[in-house]
Design a protein around this nucleic acid. Sequence first.
DNA 1: ATTAGCACTCGCCTCTACTGAGTGCTAATA
DNA 2: TATTAGCACTCAGTAGAGGCGAGTGCTAAT
Lengths: 346, 346
Amino acid sequence: MAESLNERSQNILEAIVEDYIASAEPVGSRAISRKHDFNLSPASVRNVMADLEDMGLLCSPHTSAGRIPTGKGFQYYIDSLLEVRNLNRDEKKNLRNSYRFKNMRMEDIMQEVGRVLSGLSQYTGLVMAPKFVSTVFRQIEFIRLSQGRLLAIYVSEAGLVQNKVIEVDSSLTSRDLEQISNYLNKELNGMSIQEIRAKLNEELHQERIEYDLLKKQALSLSCAALQDEVEDQVYVSGASLMLGQPEFSTPEKMKQLIQSLESKKLLIELLDRAQSAQGVQIFVGSESSDVDLQGCSLVTSNFSNKKGAIGTLGVIGPMRMNYSQVVPIVDFTAQLVSRVLDKGIK
Amino acid sequence: MAESLNERSQNILEAIVEDYIASAEPVGSRAISRKHDFNLSPASVRNVMADLEDMGLLCSPHTSAGRIPTGKGFQYYIDSLLEVRNLNRDEKKNLRNSYRFKNMRMEDIMQEVGRVLSGLSQYTGLVMAPKFVSTVFRQIEFIRLSQGRLLAIYVSEAGLVQNKVIEVDSSLTSRDLEQISNYLNKELNGMSIQEIRAKLNEELHQERIEYDLLKKQALSLSCAALQDEVEDQVYVSGASLMLGQPEFSTPEKMKQLIQSLESKKLLIELLDRAQSAQGVQIFVGSESSDVDLQGCSLVTSNFSNKKGAIGTLGVIGPMRMNYSQVVPIVDFTAQLVSRVLDKGIK
DNA sequence: ATTAGCACTCGCCTCTACTGAGTGCTAATA
DNA sequence: TATTAGCACTCAGTAGAGGCGAGTGCTAAT
């Protein structure tokens, strides 16, 4: 895949990508030859550029314009040329101070992270909360809402709260509910939702009704409360910042972009893909991919607490995004959030 | 304010507004004279139009274009000319069937309402959940997250759930917490948050420490859980639908619009204003107002359950919105949501 | 291998002319 | 007196022509 380039070609590619990141305009041979001291004439640069174009790393919007990097070009840049510096102490401190975690609810944390990510990067911040199914059971409580209607409140180890209204036939007393939750809290403690579901299914199929009434009721309630799919939470911040970027200057592009950012489904799909890997991930423009956030790149990293609930955060920006700035921000923020979540359970 | 117009002027104004709603283009005298059979020549129509322009109900984008209604013109149209028909049975049924309330959590309901409102109107749906302070206490529960850290779960009569992480010095046992919540649930039952706050403040200032420890702890916990301001929840759906409207066809307008819709603060301000009144409210383009969602109108209605928690829902669209279609939808949806919330508590 | 030179391409801007929709005013009409 | 026909005028929008400038590819010279 990554054909190796000689040093000169690499230098020129790097120069073009960086100029393009800075200017958003096609880069010409003259500019390269002048601004960077390669001691090469424009003509020589042109030759190299033609080669790079043949390899599919560059393209020109029309005959008489300069070159712009293709998705493949950006990919090469990211894989081989990009040097991500670490944040120094002051920068880390600043970043840490940007975050104001007031109320430690998961929702608030996610929202705040999105806000800061988009503010710092000047692109759009994306945060996906840990998936319900991946969380570890801590506690469940039931509150009677009305005859035959309960509110089930599930709290995960990481402090993620999910509540759900469930219908029940029998009219259980508060006392019953207390017993049931006590039972469940003991029984399910420390299990992941996935494990719990497996267990519940098993016990349900194991048709012997030897259980006492309490167990039976507990089983049915926990089923109702934990079995269903809960849709993933995605937080999008600063969508309008993207609209200032020249790549989205036309009405059509704007509309398409906003539509994409409005589609939680699409975003979840993207972030899911990111979640499989470790460390900072960079997804370059989706020309190739079926899912298109055309012309965009996505920089993500996972966060997690010790109990293993994994969420994903990141920044989505134009393919021409300032990676060397964004990557460390995303990276450090993910670490920060992980720590904050751990603090939540101590 | 509403200067009375003679019938002919009214007819012509109505025709212009409706043509403009349909076409989004300035309306000329010829078109009016031809399409509507007033038996008036374009010249006569022109005279009337000139009068309407003098009164500030119409304006022309430039000399040789037709007229478009001003905000004031729309306002007049809405106040005096608009006839809102009620939905017939089938339409109501259809509308009811559009809503899929699966899980009865407040969040889900709000989100679904936004989705459907925007889908049906083809404009942007706006929903503001009942305000925390306006809710009526039903139940509070505490869950230990870690040493010194509790999760307080508050459930209102309407089934609105708020959770909050609170810090406590003392290490309370589960037994203590149970007693505290029992005490509070008895003590605060049926009071509004506002009343509770007043009560708490009073008791706090009443410095006599005659209380027993339990009461004291309960007081401090409920303070922590209920005292702080909780930010209002606003749900925006279908922002991208607005981008298809001709009034937002330029990049600048689009950007401005999206920025406005992203600003929860602005939206809350708008919806708060709507919440004071009863029935369907129409706010026409904010030329006059300090807050600008320029060129937009807002159609809102409140929903509430019997316990008095009031939320607001509505549709925001171009000033040129199809009021006669949108108003009944908003109206009926508000009634529907009220009923659904009531069913939640039965 | 590199580079200077040159012809060529093409987007973009400006200028001009034209068109057509729509107006305001005036004078004629019922 | 209210209405209308007629007419001059205005102005956005479109299309075409021409010039500019940035940038290219190719070729021949270094």
